[in-house]
Design a protein around this nucleic acid. Structure first.
Lengths: 134, 134
DNA sequence: GTTCTTGCAAAATATTTGCAAGACG
DNA sequence: CGTCTTGCAAATATTTTGCAAGAAC
């Protein structure tokens, strides 16, 4: 599935900014920050436009936002878009990267009566195998 | 266990700011933001001091920081301090509150060889039972 | 042509840092 | 008394908002 298809399927207008964001994210095996995405992107868009695009894409459940902390927000394709399993995210405290751990599926927890879950996020913080050896 | 004891046990100096923060948090059944804590606190401390205190308390694994997003960061007593189980957190998208779900224990996931986990955070976003009825 | 999206400028908010004064042990 | 903590001022960074011009359908 390519960016244009994804947008159409979700009834969003095809704009070059949205297509570009999706293209970059879909090629990446890690979750990316706004800065990383902007650097990889040919077109030079305003940051405002980026944030609005992210918001739109997140609301349509195309992108998934992973918030590690104030300075570490990342975006990844929502697993459902590729019919992948809902998975945990690993944040490496040494290299600051967020990796999708598809081998660690997220069990959606059973909540007490009266609660509704819309989303479940699992973030594991630690040190990745690249940084381990240093 | 009271705030002063907790500080001593972790070899931290007893200051009124730290004691106050711990006092407020330990009485609360929900995770609290910096603003909420400051409002409940008698003494009038600088925000800088708060942030530094949070950092110290978090590094000593007394407090636990729950980051829902940019504008929703909360603090709670680390479960280990009260020998409670590591648990999931529920963020209500309607009332913006974070509740510790002690009935939902967090299973520390098995990572691939080479990875080390320091911390596992589970955040469930949805609507709580109070906001459900409205 | 109507509606949604973009860019620009400006504002809101959370958080961090340096440094001198003050408190803890 | 030496070391850690506080308050103040200022800086950093992300994110949001209003508004007019431009693009998608």
């Amino acid at each position: 599935m390519n960016p244009a298809e994804v947008l159409q399927r979700h009834h969003l207008k095809r704009t070059s900014c949205r297509e570009g964001i999706l293209d970059v994210i879909m090629r990446s095996d890690k979750a990316m920050s706004e800065n990383e995405i902007r650097e990889k992107l040919a077109g030079n868009y305003d940051r405002t436009t980026f944030y609005r695009s992210f918001k739109t894409l997140e609301e349509s459940r195309i992108l998934h936002r992973i918030v590690v902390d104030h300075l570490n927000v990342r975006y990844a394709i929502d697993p459902a878009v590729n019919s992948n399993p809902l998975h945990a995210h690993f944040y490496c405290e040494a290299c600051n990267e967020v990796k999708c751990m598809e081998m660690i599926p997220v069990a959606v927890p059973v909540l007490p009566k009266g609660y509704t879950a819309n989303e479940t996020e699992v973030i594991i913080k630690g040190v990745c195998h690249h940084c381990q050896d240093k």
